[in-house]
Amino acid sequence: MFSIIVDWLQAALRWAAPLIVVSFGEVFAERSGVINMGIEGIMLFGALVGVAASYYLDSLLLAVLLTILVGAVLGLAVAYLTVSRRANQVVTGLMINMVSLGATDMIFAMMSETRQNRATTFPTIFPASMHDIPVIGPLFFSQPVSTWIAFILPFIAAYILYKTRWGLNVRAVGDNPKASATAGLSVIGIKYQTVILSGIFACLGGCVLSLAEVGYFSAGGMAAGRGFIVMAACVVGGWDPVRTALICLIFGAADSAQLRIQTVSSTIPYQFLQMLPYVVTIVALTIMVKHSLVPKTWGAAYDPKDV
């Protein structure tokens, strides 16, 4: 029983890692007033690009760099539509998701080699001998490097958001774009920066999803709603990077719990266990939301000519 719990916690950290990486960017985008709903689709691209680059180019560094590039391009597309063209953010995100779902399936169909062969995954940073230390060995030292980075990111994000000038600007733009513009900030510019950032980290999160452990891409929506779960985590976490990461950890725990319970118990049909992360998300949204924390222009378009 004890080993199952350790196993579960280890998987919880691993499953939470992609969510936390994605939330890093999304928190900034939403703080600046733009909900990037396309992160679900961008994650798919990240997962695919990661696997493809790792397999064909045989370099994790190139995989990460390519992922960043693709994420930036997709983030730019979302930023152009939602910020410059002031298109509806829900619509933009959903259509980006739809394009990504189709496009990743199409590209994956052309890369038959990656179906059978596993791509190189992120390595662990600690020597194998340390993996056997009871409890903390499997929990921490056996984690791939991506998990470690994921758990440092929220603190960096919190520092940027609360302690740097740029972070202050982001918050100002989200809460009062008109005053920010009057004070001489480029509202449009900052929104572009945050949305592109959210694209990059959504893509990286997808890469972590496919390259942290499995090394495969799977067609038909591998992200399985995780982008939307991250959006929920931002709301529940009150757009605070560290709290959002904690919520992501809870969702990751739900995700890994369903896999663990499936292996030990056959009394509950596995389909009901698979529902768990989604149900947990809805429940969390229902009971843990504080409306007072919403960025003031959350989801609204900014028109510089509006007085």
Partner: peptide, 21 residues
């Protein structure tokens, strides 16, 4: 690829919302 269907639909919509400000 049969996924082209949804790509065409979504791309059309992205351009429609892109030009329809």
């Amino acid at each position: 690829s049969s996924s082209m269907n949804s790509i065409i639909i979504a791309l059309c919509m992205l351009f429609v919302i892109g030009v329809g400000v």
